[in-house]
Every structure is written in structure tokens, then in C-alpha cells.
Design a protein around this nucleic acid. Structure first.
Lengths: 364, 364
DNA sequence: AGTCGAAAGGAAATCGATTGCCTAGACGCT
DNA sequence: AGCGTCTAGGCAATCGATTTCCTTTCGACT
């Protein structure tokens, strides 16, 4: 239809210039105006003072209902939207929070952001997303920016290798750490209970009758990897079992999953289930097992971690996985931030339970 | 130096309460202050008026170098950061742009955002990310929010099914559409030249000696799918070839890729290469071909689209793919927006070329 | 020596909205 | 009739930074 028409693309910038020159599309639809409407224009139209107009629009003061209505109609008619800068200059509130992600924005940050937006959107607040790209300089730069913008609060997030140093001390605004936790235990952090997730994975495998369970995960220096590994081992021990093989530490990707499958097969460990530290590892492992003639789940059941749709659905059979409920963490962090903003700070770390999502890779 | 002395921090408001109560973490690191420092405090410390302080810090006015320095030192000492609200109230600039994504933030929006941030960050501007979740109501709500915050400009992005209706007409700020295009040809849009991408894919396959080429892609009602399909067919025609099979339209996922492989095999079409509309389709197809005993690339070469790291690396063999350079599009959109903000609006649609990234799935 | 001009910096208006304080009526009560 | 009270809404200060205009001071030139 549309497709590539001429694509004329058009001059620009003669000796005219300003971007307010937007002839082109008029055609009078609705809503928006050329030059910003101020509250005094609204007040004038309604025949009141600006102060009264402000009260009318904000539901404050003692006004006759008809006056209030008149102002509201005037505002509507003019398409008035309050200048946020002016308002926040006066009130000290910006109805904005900053979100600093330390790793590059990615698979983990997005659900967190969405969850946070959900919780904040209800309170009419907006989110400033800052991607520090794992660079402390950028991070401090963004922090300054956020402070200069007088955000009402800050959410710090990032990939979870270790607890991180607090982003600042004595900041003039409350801070909540989401997904990652602050090294200072008095700071407010919301994290997934990864041990819980690992336990659920193991218990699920036990429930479907597996007894010889191995664990393949990411780098040993990742907090997540070690925590999950330990919890998995403890879960097995609680049932009087031992791991079917030593925990295999590697990378968080499919290639390592494949390689780990090879290791498990070659060592001759009799394994009837593998709990993997990520869905990618799990998928690589599944493919390599199948290539070696094993069937999943009959010969080997596999559980992943993250519940990343692309991986769990792409894998054949579909992958059972542990969901950390990142949106829930984001939402929860935002709620704690709101409560801090409203004068009820919360300290300490909160761990939220995970959820096991069973699929074909562990079906009996 | 300055740093945190005791910072007792101060009761206030009732049986505890306001969030400014942050006793807790002292311990004197650097930077940040309890209560916002204003320019008058800086001015007082430097022994000048606020006006002079402002000039000193912004490099304006006629000041003795030593005065300027004194003010700068005072600012540094107090950790002064200008209040953005006050500044923008005065200057009319916020050094902020809004980015509205119409689909849920995802795989495509992130690189666009990163590219835009790159281009804007250099100009010290920040990005407000708004996820409209494909809901026109949310979209208009966010638009109002952005306008009330007096952003300097807006970037609209989203998944590309069709050109979209302009987000508003006669807006008081410039708008650039990125990845998706506006239906109004006078609006400024930056899009990938998908036809170019398809041509590159076909030409690459031809270059590695393939002649019987099929195309498997997404839904027919997706602009991307039809544009790529047509360009692919035209590329073949230009060499006097016909497609080895009719274009197969389906979903943008692995399952469809597998299914399509089955279709191609069962119809007995002799195919020595498949160009796929997405990396996911390609991966599903590759796996199904292999399961049916074909080898990639010897029997069948496969090219994907998107160059999505997770897919192209996860696939065995690694997947040759077409990269739309989303970051570049984001950067380019931001640059055009900046130029509009600076009074040189650009109209019309710009298409940016794609890039073919060869990998093992088409290696000779 | 007087005038002119440049240099340096201060005073005050300004941006737009909010809000505390005050006043003018209206009304009720004794 | 006079006084108090309540209500509706206006006035003006305020938030913090920028910027225009103006004053002062000093030096140079005729």
C-alpha cells in the first residue's frame, strides 16, 4: 500500500526557521495549541483571578461550585495544561522519579520499569530512565541530573552480580534498590528470593520423580549463581539426596548449556534431571542432549530460570522455568518509594518469592 | 572536603515523618547535601549578587576572571546544582525530550532509546520514556504529560505494522518518528530501508551461489512483511530468477519457522536457500530442517532478519542476518529532533540502509 | 582637568503556578 | 439596628534562576 513512495524529503531551514513554523498539517483537529496556554489566560476567560483559577483547578479553597465549573470549562476550552516547572518550583514536588539502571537497559530492566510505571502511573508520576551502562562516571552524572531535576525519588536497578555500593549517601531524596540490593543494609532493597526459586525448581523435579539431579549455572562470581546453587544443594540434602554431579559453573548463554551437556554426558553421570541457572543455558543443554540421543523430559527433565518467553517457548519441548516476577519487584519497589516520598520510609531488604512455571520439559 | 559532617537531620513533622528524615547513613562520603543548595547561597558565599553568580556559572556577562572563579569554587564547595524547574521556567527550555513507544517497550525500542540517548546525551539532554502499550488513551495521556513538562521535543516510536496516524497536529514542540513512520508525509520520520535489507539478503544468497531461494516471513498485514517480500522477489527477478516457492506468510516466531520448514519440505520444492523475515523464524526453520536431515548451510543456506544477538548466536550454525541499525535510527532521529529544536525543522521520511551480517548459516 | 567609554557587578523584573492572608459582602442573631 | 461570622474570591509573596537594564568605578584621551 503505502510502501516507498517518492520520499521527497524536502528542503528545510531556509532563511526562515523556527520550529514553530509548522504550516503543513493544520486541518483543525482537536487538542493542541500553538503557544502554551497559561493559567492567567484561563483566569481571564473565566473572569477570575489566577489564584482563584488555580484553586478551582486543584480542588482547593472555598469556591462556589459554579465558579469552579466555569474555570474548568475555560481551561478545557483553551486546552490548558499546567506548566510542570512552575508548579514544582512552588510545591517542591515534581511527580517524577528517576530510574537508574547500571547495566545496559535490557531484559531485566524492562519488566522492572513496567512494574514501576504501573505503580507510579496510578499516582500520576512519570519515570526518568537513565542507563548508566555499567559506568560509575555516567552513574554519578545521571544522579546529579536527577537531583537537579528534583525528582521525588530514585529507583536503582541493575544486573545482579553482587550487592552494590549505595549510589550516594545523605541524598535529599529517598532511594529504593530494585532487583539489585544495596550493600548498606539500612537502604531499602527489593530483590527476588532466588534461593526460594531454586528450591521450587528442585522440589518440582523431585515431585515429578527425579532423584539424580544436576545443576548447571552461570559464573561462580555471580551472586545469583552461588545462591541458587547452594539452595539447590540444600534442597536436595533435605531429602537425603546428593547432587548427581558437581555444580557446573560457566557463562549465562546457550553455548555453555551445550558444553555442559557434553560434560555431563561424558562423565557418565547418570542424570535424570538438570536444573539450569538460566533459560538460555537450559535451552542449549536441551538441544545438546537431544543431539546426543536423549529425550527431554523422558530421559532428562530440565528446568530453566528467568521464564523468558522467547527462550521457554522457542525450546522444544517448552521449558519449565522459574519466574522471578520482575514486574512485581518493580511495582513493589515503586510502592516503597512512594511511601518513602510520603514520609514513611522503609528500611532493609525485602525478598520476594519466585514462581515455578511448569511446561513440557518436566512433564511426566 | 566539605562532605558530610554530622548531618543530624532533623526531626520535623510530627511523630516522625517527612522523608527528609534521613538520619541513618552518614559516614561522610562526598557530594550530596541534605537540603537543596540555591544559587543565592552560592552568591552569598562568594560575596556577589545572585545575578552575578548566575552569570559566572553560565559563562555569561562581563566578569573579572577571579570573580568567576570565586563563584565557581563556592558552587563546588556547596555542591550546588541548579534547579532545573527554575531554570526552565525562565528560559523555556527543559533539555528534556519525550520518547513515546506505542508498543510495549521491547526488543526494538531499547536500541532506539540507546541511540537517541547517545545523540542527546552529548547535548546534555535527558529522555522521558513513556510506554503507551498500544493504547491510544495512554498515548494521549502521555502526550499531555510530556507537554505539561514542556519537553523540548518528542520522539515517537513503535513496532512497525503500518505507518501510524500523527500523534497530534499543531503541537507546540517538534516531533520525530523513529522506526515507525507518520502517515502524514510532512512529518519527519526515520525508518529502516527494509527493501534494502531484503535486497542485501537476496544478493548475499546469490553471491554464495544459491539460485532456488524461498522466503518465509510474518503476517501479510505487516508492512514489513510485504515490503521485504516484494523487494526479495524483485531482487530475484532482476537476476532472471523466480522464487523457489510462494512467499510463506505466518507469525513472527520460531514455531512458524518450524512449520514453514515442514511446508517447504513436503511440497517437494527444491530449495537451496531461505530468506526469513525474522531471526526467530529463521531459527525455527533451521532446527526443523536439521531435524529432517538437511544440513545448514550445505543443503540449505538461511538468512534471518533483525540481527538479534540472542537468536543469531543461539542458532547452530550461527545465523546470517540483516541488521536494521536501530541504534543508528535512534541516533539519527534524535539529531533531526535537535535540529528542529534549534530552529531548523526537517520534513519528510528518511530511510536508512540496512547491513548484512554474514555468519555460518550461509558460509560456503 | 574634564569628558567619554568600557568594564564589573548590582537591582529588580520575569517565567507560571500555588497559597496564605485579607477583605468585601451576605447573612444571622440579639 | 448593630455586631459577629462565614463565604467567596482577590492580592501579593513565593519558589530559584536568568536577564535586562542601570550604576559605579576606573582609565584613557584630548
Amino acid at each position: 500500500m503505502l510502501a516507498c513512495q517518492e520520499r521527497v524529503t524536502v528542503a528545510l531551514s531556509g532563511p526562515e526557521g523556527n520550529f514553530q513554523v509548522r504550516s503543513g498539517n493544520w486541518g483543525g483537529t482537536l487538542s493542541n495549541i500553538e503557544r502554551a496556554v497559561t493559567i492567567s489566560q484561563v483566569a481571564a476567560l473565566a473572569g477570575v483571578s489566577t489564584g482563584t483559577a488555580s484553586k478551582a483547578l486543584n480542588g482547593r479553597g472555598a469556591l462556589r461550585p459554579e465558579t469552579r465549573l466555569r474555570v474548568q470549562q475555560a481551561a478545557e476550552q483553551l486546552g490548558f495544561v499546567a506548566n510542570a516547572a512552575a508548579r514544582s518550583l512552588q510545591t517542591g514536588r515534581t511527580y517524577t522519579v528517576g530510574m537508574i539502571t547500571t547495566d545496559s537497559i535490557g531484559r531485566f530492566s524492562i519488566p522492572l520499569l513496567i512494574g514501576a510505571e504501573d505503580a507510579l502511573g496510578a499516582g500520576q508520576m512519570s519515570v526518568f530512565l537513565c542507563d548508566a551502562r555499567d559506568d560509575p562516571i555516567r552513574e554519578q552524572y545521571y544522579l546529579r541530573t536527577l537531583l537537579s531535576r528534583k525528582v521525588d525519588g530514585i529507583i536503582v536497578t541493575g544486573r545482579r552480580t553482587q550487592a552494590r555500593a549505595p549510589i550516594g549517601v545523605g541524598l535529599p531524596v529517598p532511594v529504593v534498590y530494585a532487583f539489585i540490593s544495596s550493600a548498606d543494609p539500612r537502604d531499602c532493597s527489593v530483590v527476588p528470593d532466588e534461593a526460594d526459586g531454586a528450591r521450587r525448581a528442585i522440589q518440582h523435579l523431585l515431585a515429578v520423580g527425579r532423584r539424580r539431579i544436576a545443576h548447571v549455572t552461570g559464573p561462580e562470581h555471580h551472586h545469583s549463581a552461588t545462591v541458587r546453587a547452594r539452595a539447590a544443594a540444600e534442597s536436595l540434602a533435605a531429602e537425603g539426596l546428593r547432587p548427581a554431579a558437581p555444580t557446573l559453573y560457566g557463562e549465562w548463554n546457550e553455548a555453555w548449556g551445550r558444553q555442559a551437556a557434553g560434560i555431563l554426558l561424558s562423565t557418565g553421570a547418570e542424570v535424570d534431571a538438570v536444573f539450569c541457572g538460566s533459560d538460555q543455558i537450559a535451552r542449549g543443554l536441551v538441544e545438546a542432549l537431544q543431539a546426543a540421543g536423549r529425550t527431554v523430559p523422558q530421559d532428562v527433565a530440565v528446568v530453566g530460570f528467568d521464564n523468558w518467553d522467547v527462550m521457554v517457548d522457542g525450546c522444544r519441548p517448552a521449558l519449565t522455568s522459574v519466574d522471578m516476577d520482575l514486574e512485581g519487584i518493580g511495582r513493589s519497589a515503586a510502592e516503597l518509594l512512594l511511601s518513602a516520598i510520603n514520609g514513611e520510609p522503609v528500611h532493609g531488604q525485602r525478598a520476594r518469592p519466585c514462581r515455578l512455571v511448569p511446561r513440557a520439559s518436566t512433564a511426566v
